[in-house]
């Protein structure tokens, strides 16, 4: 396995607040890597440093051998990003958005195939303002993939989706991986991580608590709790939440 993303001792502060204290992990080619953690744990800041949207204050980050802070032009060609809460202009149509975004890349994907794969075929001429929440998320994924990236970072992809749309999104992520794209998935849904991720990093208070497969984490939690079966959620609660009730999901 070759490492597609390497993060070593990442540190990021906003003024006096330390958002990411010391985070290290590697993501291997072709895997779905989950980043879990309570709200405010530093998940989004971590991936923003990986995407090059924020400048890190310390540590090393390499994506496909590129430094996100220095090699942005090349990195953006190969890294697809699905942002939390990023909208499009209200009156922009689905097909127009894809046509626009594909013109940004050297070797773009076929937008028609992408729309079909994402089930947006029928919404081609619909304006962004009139799309449902699920359709917006799917369009957001389409835009993250239209550049034919080797790596995709998906942040809180299924937050705000109803159960059916969430399941569709999961199927989609599996499809994308099947095409050879390495995926980093930021989430706070344990079920999602359990189903999709090969490995997860649990981040709490700006530090990586542990990196392992969801099954291994659940097994550990079962052993620690002295029960027969435990879920990833049990492991998560045991590993984080040193501050008890200071986070609510």
């Amino acid at each position: 396995m070759t490492a597609v993303i390497e993060v070593q001792g990442l540190h990021k502060r906003y003024g006096d607040t330390v958002a990411v204290d010391d985070v290290s992990f590697t993501v291997d080619e072709g895997e779905i890597f989950g980043i879990l953690g309570p709200n405010g744990a530093g998940k989004t800041t971590t991936v923003e440093c990986v995407e090059g949207l924020r400048e890190r204050d310390g540590g090393m980050v390499r994506v496909l051998g590129l430094d996100p802070a220095r090699d942005r032009a090349e990195l953006t060609q190969q890294l697809g990003v699905q942002l939390q809460d990023a909208r499009l202009p209200e009156r922009l149509r689905v097909d127009e958005a894809l046509d626009l975004y594909r013109s940004f890349y050297r070797a773009p994907a076929d937008p028609d195939a992408l729309l079909e794969a994402l089930g947006l075929d029928g919404a081609r001429r619909t304006q962004f303002g009139k799309l449902s929440g699920g359709q917006r998320q799917r369009l957001s994924i389409a835009l993250a993939l239209v550049g034919n990236p080797r790596v995709a970072v998906l942040d809180e992809l299924t937050t705000g989706l109803d159960p059916r749309a969430r399941r569709e999104a999961w199927r989609l992520i599996a499809d994308v991986r099947a095409r050879g794209v390495t995926i980093v998935l930021v989430t706070h849904f344990m079920e999602e991580a359990e189903r999709l991720c090969d490995r997860v990093a649990v981040i709490d208070a700006g530090r990586v608590v542990i990196v392992d497969s969801p099954a291994a984490l659940a097994a550990r939690a079962a052993a620690e709790l002295g029960v027969e079966r435990a879920s990833l959620e049990d492991a998560f609660v045991a590993l984080t939440g040193s501050g008890e009730d200071d986070h609510v999901d």
Partner: peptide, 14 residues
């Protein structure tokens, strides 16, 4: 555009 994240999304592209 800034408020809605339109510009932010563009920042992730080449």
């Amino acid at each position: 555009y800034r408020e809605q994240g339109v510009l932010r999304r563009l920042r992730t592209t080449p």
